[in-house]
Simulated assay, not measured.
Amino acid sequence: MTSAGVYAALGPEGIALMDARHGKGRWRFLDPVGSQLWLTITGGTAPEAAVELLTTRWQDKGADAARVRADLGALAADLERARLLQPAARPLTTRDGAEIRFETAVPVGLVSRAAGHVALFGALVLLRCLPVRFALTGARAVTRLPGRAATVAQAEEAFTAVRRAARMWPGRAACLEESLAAHFTAALTGHRVRWVIGARFTPHGAHAWIEADGSVIGQDETDRIWPYVPTLQVEHPH
């Protein structure tokens, strides 16, 4: 059974769980040992049996069985209380080969400029005034609008339109608001991009961005800690 609203990013350093069922969303990062426990349980093994299986495995490697059993048992109980011991929706892994394109000044047409303001307003309302699940619903809804896959240049124009619109709004628009607004802007101007929320493990962190034609669009020159592992992605169903 899949836990609707829970999304997972699988990486070599562990697993990141995004719980979008409550409020603004919650993140939980598990190290490789915790990831083994989560994957074993969500794969169909009962929590108690999973704890014993992994305890035996680590005992064979020389670890103290009592301590391993206690630590894994506590983690399993904690995850169960958080209702995270169910398979997450569409577990994702690192996507290799994506080109990281940093923010650059590009011309923005009048239509894109207007769409950027409308889209940013919508993104701010959804993300600041409502639980995050409404933003996810809105992001999926605009993928039904008619349009074609955006080129890198078209996606960069949508992102730049949002950045410029954000200068006129009070407060700072973070990556989540900007990327969702860019996703909306592209859709309103007849283009499709992929909206992605992801996580990194060293250090722990979350990020959101848009992609077009295999490229990550509009990243900050100062943020070179990649790759982020996709946790959730919204795009037009092909």
Rank of each mutant, 00 (worst) to 15 (best):
F102L: 11
F102A: 07
F102R: 15
F102M: 09
E103M: 10
A105M: 08
A105H: 09
V106G: 06
P107S: 02
V108F: 00
V108L: 02
G109D: 00
G109W: 02
G109A: 00
G109L: 03
L110P: 08
S112H: 02
S112K: 03
S112Q: 10
R113L: 00
R113D: 00
R113K: 10
R113H: 04
A114G: 12
A114Q: 08
A115D: 03
A115N: 08
G116W: 02
H117D: 04
H117Q: 10
V118Y: 02
V118G: 00
A119D: 06
A119Q: 05
A119V: 02
L120N: 04
L120P: 08
F121Y: 10
F121W: 12
G122E: 03
G122Q: 04
L124R: 15
L124M: 06
L124H: 12
L124N: 14
L124I: 03
V125F: 01
L126I: 03
L127K: 03
L127W: 03
R128W: 03
R128C: 01
R128E: 04
C129Q: 14
C129N: 13
L130F: 10
P131Q: 08
V132I: 15
V132R: 12
R133S: 13
R133H: 14
F134S: 11
F134L: 14
A135L: 00
A135I: 03
L136T: 04
L136Y: 00
T137F: 14
T137D: 09
T137H: 11
T137N: 07
T137G: 13
G138N: 07
G138C: 09
A139N: 09
R140I: 07
R140K: 15
A141V: 10
A141S: 03
A141R: 09
V142L: 07
T143H: 13
T143I: 02
R144D: 00
R144I: 12
R144Y: 14
R144F: 07
L145R: 07
L145H: 02
P146V: 10
R148Y: 02
A149G: 11
A149H: 13
A149C: 06
A150E: 04
A150K: 07
A150V: 05
T151S: 15
T151F: 09
T151V: 09
V152H: 15
V152I: 08
V152D: 08
V152P: 13
V152K: 15
A153S: 07
A155Q: 04
E156D: 13
A158R: 08
F159N: 14
F159V: 08
